[in-house]
Design a protein around this nucleic acid. Structure first.
Lengths: 343, 343
DNA sequence: TCGAAAACATGAAGCGATTTAATTAGTGCT
DNA sequence: AGCACTAATTAAATCGCTTCATGTTTTCGA
């Protein structure tokens, strides 16, 4: 292990003081072009690696921000993360990402670690079991923070999310218009605010059509494909099964469609299925999934911008952006198979 | 912005010296239980945040490792990343992830940033245009590094990848056995070693069956769904179009199937399609995609373990793990639609 | 030719932690 | 009581870098 090269080594090699090297490094202050070149040459020759930790010690403004994603295996969150990265990076920030896999413990670890490393802000897609208390604690300690996608009850911080209520209501109205009356809801955990919002929209639409909700057709499950499969299978085992299901999100919907197929039925023909998110998987599923598009990448960019505003101090308090949710009708509700919106 | 709380504040609050606080923090040395409790209480009360940068200054061993992913929107890499994380995290390391979106510039930035932050190792899924020189430079400077998935010509570092040659050969033999003779290859850039390996297997199988390769049916394109769509469209516009195509990976294959559908043909009936990777999207595509399974999560875990060995010094030199590649036959090659392997 | 203002360069202090050697207090034994 | 030892605690040096006040030159108008 070669001993670390420091600015002192560079200074010696370039025949200047370490102050001068530092000025070249940071671009603060004036330095003659020749000197600067000599310093840069020395850095190249010696294989110098800047020590950000040491720098931040003296000058505690870092350009690192953290992105904490709850489920990277869900393409929706992957797209969101990419949108966030796009914005932050073009603004000169280095976004570091971590996946919590829906574990609150991991989330705390990761957030702590990011704070310890001097992140100047965090974008958090909270785990399903996050509470407002934890999040407020963070914010109160002066860490700029933006919640993405998942509202958390009681959290008084900035939020970027989609209009879950309106989106779900639109999807439910679509199913009602197609004549469905026995409609189930699959996925999400009851404690998740997002699920509450989506179910509120669902209920609202059903109530407006004077259709009663049967609580036995509301199945909770984790927002994953496998859990969706299991939950849908349970629903299918019930007597008097629904003719349509709304799913918490696309991955649950895809799991549900799989279960329907396994049960010897055809999604879109025997049972209508609607998802939420409009991931690329939804477009390419079989049948193509009717879903609610929220623009994952755009939401990510919004979240990035919002965080930058928080960090720069331009934001006076917590902001909220609720993105539009648009129903995208494809084949999984009985639309003709020649597809209206495949790309 | 509250002034930062340091161990000096903790020391004062707990009525001890900062050395004692440090000992409590690191667990080095002996300290009486009462003192330790007092210190911990003070940390809690004051909202202390450990400053890793300062600590690493004096004691330069960090538990941070970097994962650099070339395309997070490809579910294959997402699964890989999750596998890596699983291993590293259970070994007490904090993996920070960054997405390069196939940009070599971003890759250099990200790698540099990780070095500057004192990462003790890096797992790199290199961009398509990475060269051995850059990677060797990193390694020679003493940074433990493991290349994942993508071999880079000339790089003398550890590697975890799949048996691209054998996997492609098996897929090609499958197409040949189904009677196909005009077989195209879609996707990947010619400069990518992975593509070369996969095409080697493809060529080998065709040669063994005395089937000639038509270079006009070998279409390069970026490994994305959109590029696959465009490339396949070009192939379909040719006279005497192929009856089967092997694709560089699953996302290209899904794009290709979409192009086939758009062209008024049916993938799996009019044109056989094979992918590579076996992502979950392949299983749920329509028709379900015949592909080569490489076990993304497992490869990720291997890569994580290999990096840990490099960091601990247990590895004497660069290691290589080539994971098995297994053909998974589904419907996109003409198998009956009632599916053999859907889950 | 002189003095003021620019333009560069540097020495020393300090950021928040770790670490080593030194100090203090406590214990058992003769 | 005196001595040897151990356990608990601490002072001081140090890690790599930034910053500010303080030189040291240069430049240039009058």
């Amino acid at each position: 292990m070669a001993p670390r090269v420091t600015i002192i080594d560079i200074a010696r090699a370039a025949g200047v003081s370490k102050s001068t090297v530092s000025i070249v490094l940071t671009g603060s202050g004036r330095v003659s072009p020749e000197t600067a070149d000599a310093v840069r040459a020395a850095m190249r020759d010696l294989g110098y690696v800047y020590n950000r930790g040491a720098a931040n010690l003296r000058n505690p403004k870092s350009h690192v921000v953290g992105m904490v994603i709850n489920d990277l295996s869900n393409p929706f969150f992957a797209e969101l993360a990419i949108g966030i990265e796009r914005v932050l990076r073009t603004s000169g920030y280095i976004p570091f990402m971590a996946n919590t896999a829906e574990s609150l413990l991991r989330q705390s670890e990761v957030v702590r670690s990011m704070r310890e490393h001097g992140a100047s802000g965090i974008i958090l897609c909270p785990t399903a079991d996050s509470t407002g208390r934890e999040i407020n604690e963070l914010a109160e300690l002066g860490m700029p923070i933006v919640l993405a996608i998942r509202r958390v009850a009681g959290a008084r911080v900035s939020l970027v999310a989609s209009d879950n209520r309106a989106g779900s209501a639109a999807a439910a109205r679509h199913l009602l218009a197609l004549g469905h009356r026995r409609i189930g809801y699959v996925g999400g955990m009851a404690r998740m605010a997002v699920r509450q919002d989506r179910i509120a929209g669902f209920s609202e639409a059903l109530a407006a059509a004077s259709v009663a909700i049967d609580p036995t057709r509301m199945i909770e499950c984790a927002p994953t494909k496998d859990a969706g499969f299991v939950a849908m299978s349970a629903l299918l085992a019930q007597p008097n099964r629904p003719t349509a299901v709304m799913c918490f999100n696309d991955v649950v919907a895809i799991g549900a469609m799989l279960a329907i197929t396994r049960h010897g039925l055809t999604p879109g023909v025997d049972i209508a299925v609607v998802g939420f998110d409009d991931t690329s998987e939804a477009r390419h599923a079989s049948p193509a999934l009717t879903t609610v598009s929220v623009g994952a990448g755009d939401l990510g960019e919004r979240a990035g911008q919002m965080l930058l505003r928080q960090i720069s101090g331009a934001a006076t308090g917590p902001e909220t952006h609720i993105g539009e949710a648009r129903l995208v009708v494809r084949e999984s509700c009985g639309a003709p198979a020649q597809s209206r919106d495949v790309a």
